[in-house]
């Protein structure tokens, strides 16, 4: 709790900087307009103008907030929360592929980790490639993956989810391998003295003790998965999703639209990661491991 004041100060400073930046970046256009209308701007007029342009280089925070309200809250109020103009609709599209990719990636990552922990051949031959796989900038080949999968007949949610999966399985593998190996030799010996079978050792010792690692990896995987979904929406000429909003905004110079999509993406990331944090706290407390 003692962090609240410093954090708020930093956030307030950032917003102040944002307003100042909006004045600085939008001023040339404001002067330009004034020169053409043959009036001279006083400073308050300049500030007022830079904060209310239609296509500013950097929209002021309240412009973005208004845009977000118009595309979310106002849409709900008017009874059309899932209209195509509403950000809720686009966030939902992005969220669904994020969630699917995240689930697939977590499943794949956990299975690989179990294989790596229990099979030395896999450990020696697969683990280096898991690490190497992440030096390939997968996001860069996202367009190709989507085009290829479309050609095979897989379209819609799944191609985007595949990209999310590729990005999110890695932190899970690394975290789970560490977690499944975290029981000490002493604890493993204890299981042996109880004549525990391999599967009993797994379910009663290795899996429970990997949980803290598991949740930490899940948070990273969720963030990565969201990035994957957003980038996956860029190149397909996708019509829906936060990534498509970004692309459309950049084509038509709608900066306010870009920023509102960005803020929505950030909020989505914060909510999803926070949700995992909550599940983590509840699970660990019920397992008696809460710190």
């Amino acid at each position: 709790m003692r962090n609240v004041v410093p954090v708020l100060t930093v956030v307030a400073t950032l917003i102040a900087l944002w307003y100042a930046g909006a004045v600085a970046l939008n001023a040339p256009w404001a002067y330009d307009k004034a020169a053409r209308a043959e009036v001279t701007l006083t400073f308050p007029e300049l500030v007022a103008d830079t904060w209310s342009q239609e296509k500013p280089k950097l929209p002021a925070p309240h412009q973005v907030a208004t845009e977000i309200w118009n595309t979310t809250g106002a849409m709900i109020a008017s009874g059309r929360p899932f209209s195509k103009r509403s950000l809720i609709y686009h966030s939902w599209i992005t969220f669904s592929s994020t969630a699917l990719g995240f689930l697939l990636g977590t499943a794949l990552g956990t299975l690989l980790a179990i294989g790596i922990v229990y099979n030395r051949t896999m450990d020696m031959s697969v683990m280096p490639w898991v690490i190497a796989s992440q030096t390939i900038p997968i996001l860069a080949i996202a367009p190709m993956i989507i085009v290829v999968l479309n050609a095979v007949g897989i379209s819609g949610l799944l191609p985007k989810a595949m990209i999310s999966m590729y990005l999110s399985f890695f932190p899970v593998v690394v975290g789970m391998v560490k977690g499944l190996r975290s029981p000490s030799q002493m604890q493993l010996d204890q299981m042996r003295t109880w004549n525990a079978s391999r599967s009993q050792t797994f379910w009663k010792l290795r899996l429970p003790s990997s949980m803290p690692y598991f949740f930490t990896s899940l948070k990273i995987a969720m963030a990565a998965s969201l990035v994957g979904a957003i980038v996956g929406e860029l190149p397909t000429g996708a019509v829906a999703g936060l990534g498509a909003r970004l692309l459309a905004g950049s084509y038509y110079g709608q900066t306010i639209q870009i920023w509102s999509a960005l803020i929505m993406a950030a909020t989505l990331a914060a909510v999803l990661v926070g949700l995992i944090g909550l599940i983590q706290r509840i699970t660990l407390r019920r397992m008696g491991m809460a710190a």
Partner: peptide, 9 residues
């Protein structure tokens, strides 16, 4: 943790 890549455009 944010999708900073979105700043690209």
């Amino acid at each position: 943790a944010l999708p900073i890549i979105g700043l690209a455009p």
